[in-house]
Amino acid sequence: MSGNPVMSAPVVETPLQRFLAEMLEDRIAVGALMVFAALVGVAVLAPFITPQNPYDLAQVDVLDARLPPGTLASAGFTLVLGSDGTGRDLYSAILYGLRISLSVGALSGVIAMITGASLGLVAAYVGGWVEATIMRIVDLQLSLPAVLVALILVAVLGKGVDKIILALVIVQWAYYARTVRASALVERRKEYVDAALCLDLSPGRILFRHILPNCLAPLIVVGTVQTAHAIALEATLSFLGVGLPQTEPSLGVLIANGFQYMLSGRYWISFFPGIALLVTIVSINLVGDRLRDVLNPRLKR
């Protein structure tokens, strides 16, 4: 038996509990989070809560085109938000469009995060010319306007969901790389990394099991903000007609479709998808702002 007294640790709340408690202190962020959760919910449940599948041409009647909100459709249901130029029910089209916009944003965000974070980690750990090369590409990438790069890429790659996602990843990975490299450089100097080196653990293990988990906080913050950017960028591209195809309209395509009718008083075709896009992006950004406040240790006492 050791002569040292065996001591017990004081009971402290876990980091997750503290994080949640602090997150919930801000009413606006809670509201935004609830709105965003609701948007994700209706997007997922779209096939079950919409009267029409807007992708199924058999269900769309051209005679229903451009009807104002509240009109009865020929299939017998009410067009709550009116219909667009091809006779699609706008309510259904918005929910399906939301599905596309959210999944394109999320998917491109995740792929860009994985790519950027890995490159940023390697840059910070290896240093030398590898770091210089990666970071100069990052600088180059960040110095060009995102819309311009995305436009050129889509023009070269062609239309389609996969192409759009690829373009968004290429435009966005640099943000993640820069963020991860900055915090990995700080973490690298901490003594727990020296301890891991002394224990002869492999560089891969040190990078991904020791350093990366400590860089997650800023990564999550950048991730939310960039996902909002990705959704907006996809909408921009679709609005300009180089994004997603007409047959699978995202919110941007819907807005573009209604644009030509704006001056003729048929505001709803662009207006309602526009509102949906606005609410989505604002709610994500509000959650991101709060995340940054809670996760940034410099702002804490």
């Binding site: 003594e191 727990y192 020296d194 301890a195 891991a196 002394c198 002869d200 988990p213």
Partner: peptide
């Protein structure tokens, strides 16, 4: 090489930064 490396271990100064906070 590995057994010699493991034979020498280090204890660090700062109890706050020498342990990985996520493990």
């Amino acid at each position: 090489r590995r057994s010699v490396k493991l034979a020498v271990q280090m204890v660090f100064q700062d109890p706050a930064s020498s342990l990985n906070p996520r493990m």
